[in-house]
Design a binder for these strands. Sequence first.
DNA 1: AGCACGCCGACT
DNA 2: GTCGGCGTGCTC
Length: 815
Amino acid sequence: MVLPLPLPQLFTYKIPDQLVDTVSAGCRIIVPFGQRKFVTGVVRSIHQHAPASYQTKELIDVLDVTPTMNAYQFKFMDWMAEYYLCAPGEVLQAALPSGFKLSSESMIQLNPLFQEASVDLTEKERRIIQELRSNTLSYKDISKLIDQSSVQPIIKLLIQKQAILLFEEVKEKYSPKIISKIRLADQYTTPHALANLMQELDKKPRQQEVLMRYLQEVPVIQTPGANIPGIEKTFFTASGLSTSSLQTLIKNKVFEAFEEVISRLSYRADEKKSVVELSEQQEAAKESILLQLDTKDSVLLHGVTGSGKTEIYIDLIKRSIDNGSQALLLLPEIALTTQIVQRLEEYFGDRMGVYHSKFSDNERVEVWRGLQEGRYDFIVGVRSSVFLPFTHLGLIIIDEEHEASYKQQDPAPRYNGRDAALMLARIHNAKTVLGSATPSIESRDAALKNRWGYVPLLNRYGNVSLPEIRLADMRVERKNKTVQQGFSLTLLSAIRETIANKKQVIIFQNRRGYAPMLECEDCGNIPMCTSCSVSLTYHQFSHELRCHYCGFTRKVPQKCDSCSSHRLKTVGSGTERIEDELQILLPEARIRRMDLDTTRKKNSFAELITAFSQHEIDILIGTQMVTKGLDFANVELVGVYDADRMLYFPDFRAIERTYQMIVQVSGRAGRKSGEGKVIIQTAQPEHPVFAFIKNNDYDGFFTRELYEREMYHYPPFTRVTHISVLHLDKKEALKTAHGLTAKLKDAIGSKRILGPQVASIEKLRNYYHIELFIKLEKDIKGLQSIKNKIASIVQNEHTLHIGSKGRIIIDTDQN
DNA sequence: AGCACGCCGACT
DNA sequence: GTCGGCGTGCTC
Ligand SMILES: [Zn+2]
Ligand SMILES: [Zn+2]
């Protein structure tokens, strides 16, 4: 079996005789593990080979009647553990919604044989015993009760005195949602019986009232079937009727009380639209996709922003479902909005399951079960939906295929949802369609080399023109002193004109807060985070300095930490400042901001979207959030506040990212009218990336970028594995990293290793980061054995030199 | 990962 | 004296 723990191996347990018939591969079982009494794991296989080298324990219980996981999932998870060099248990941890795991807790109960008079008790002990007479308690409860952190000694003593008993309480985390309902007892559902009953109740007006209300709501005689589902009990309390009368009616068997398990997932209207209306261009693209899928497993759909890729997806998904297969649509987290979900619901109704990371555990369990029970044949979801229990997947669509957020960053498995989905498709023998307006270099390359099919959509839906893109040369404007509060005259006058025409504006700046740093004008000191080597971002609204990496906050200092000067200035601009300053420049404009800080509350995102779409906002300032999937007909101007920042990230994808980000946000302009304008503020207008963006020249951009990648041996020509050594002590981190580098060079060749070097952010959450890169050629024999070698060297180095003061992270296909 | 064991510093 | 810190080792 697999346990959801970061351990490399599987574990073998004995199945007790009485459970033999109930266990099968894929079932969740509870086992004792080490000192832990109950751990939930999943059965991988059942065999008859009793291990010779150790004693097996018996499993305790089986949680499932039907297995939670199937063989496709195992195959997929095995691939993932191997490819991303992590433990099978780590993959399981990522795959299983935590609602599937058991929670277990030690509970304390009073020993029924305990005689209080027979022993001496301290004051604290007495208080605990007193409380235990009415309740069972957890360790935490007791700690609270006696206001003391260590309770272990007291508990030990009480056990010795035979006052209490310990037991382990295990519960399934998932709990179905149950509602209490009532319905009329069967015998009263005929007109005659009902009339008699009414008469009997003549002298009991309250009860009669309740019955009347029920009949109003459930016309038992006219629609006989209506009595079966009954009505929620809370209906009566809500409408102010006497609950005691209702209780009496239930007691007298007039009403029958029963419970019903209901879904947490809101019921959706049945599908209304059965066919998608495709434009000529879309129809042609769809036909081309289908044709290419005859001979290829994957097709890249390269459609400019606003070309209507979603309709094509819908058509393809419908087709796949009609063939009796399941379909999966993957979206980046920020793109899975209610807007898109509602649009899909119109076509797929309740045959569609939504798998979102914002869902509660219980909801995720319900989607998982729903898929198993055949209630869904189409799932729209984020990265982690690749783990769902599909049984006959026919089509996977990966939208916004280029998105970096498809890569899981921190806990292992550090998988790329796109690449994992491609593997999932292979396992199911399914087809894959990857969509993007700005395909990743890797994907375009795969299509160009004929491994994948390729379908371009060159025009926007309805032949609407692409926006006109202009550059605002900040160097020239600064020299001419036409820059106000960071806004070039070019951009500012365009904003004015757009608002005057009653159209809307989006301003994009990929940085939240007011200003990325505070600086002392006298000594140049910059307040830094105490745990990270980054400056603290100034947040005006909350009036604090905040670290965007670890969350550390402090009050805004009144004077410099080092020289006590009061002359502190803000440096740089985040969305909050831009909002502020633009309001000063345009006092009449209705300006709002959309970033992590303004959308933290539950419905704030939806509210902003609604307000903007109803034109209650003229200018929306935002971070990445405004680049994806938003479809506002009235937006005619997009301003990119600072295009240069992203270009200089120390990362081989910096240019690709810049290109994608700007093209995506530009795509918000003029989606309906075709009158869209984009203005990009840059101090380097001669940088080639801007010419490609301006001329909508993806191919030019691609060719140049591919050449660079080949020159410098980066993907798609190589595979980059990134290794970070984390340690609380910088010297130790460096020492280990150097040692590791030497061993790796020795094992797989020195020209494949780059580094070690201090990471671009040296310290994060008090851990020093030293990194090194391993570049492996694209198509080499024995790739997996080289990777395994790397993993075992890393593992070794970790146990030898790191211990618990740090860790070493392997990131396959870093991005 | 979590849990126990074991070995050293600073408190009643 | 012992309480509690964390380094180390193990889990079928
Ligand atoms: Zn100073
Ligand atoms: Zn920090």
